[in-house]
Amino acid sequence: MNNDTQIVKGILEGCILKILEQEETYGYKTVEMLCNVGFDVNEATVYPILTRLQNKGLLKIDKRPSPYGPTRKYYSLTNKGKKSLNDFQDTWDRIKNIVDKIMEDDKND
């Protein structure tokens, strides 16, 4: 999967918002969670998305020391982030239905 395409970036943003809605977590753990569900991503893909979401005001951060020493940022959703996640969910459901329909039609033909 090419993670640089706009569509994958958009989907990743939505998935990251969902992960952070369920659990307040930090950058490296987010990457692990995405990899565990099947995304082929690394820190270099996920970190700029996290900073972009943070700069858009969708994420709030809490800084705590990590077990290894440096300060670690824990991300969670702001109200704006929750609204953005709902918007993503609606858009995703709509697009998924449309794409499924087209794919089904293609199979039936």
Partner: peptide, 15 residues
């Protein structure tokens, strides 16, 4: 902030 984030991320991955 970025410097700290990158350090934490890289140290975690290395560990």
């Amino acid at each position: 902030e970025i410097k700290d984030d990158i350090l934490d991320m890289l140290i975690s991955a290395q560990e």
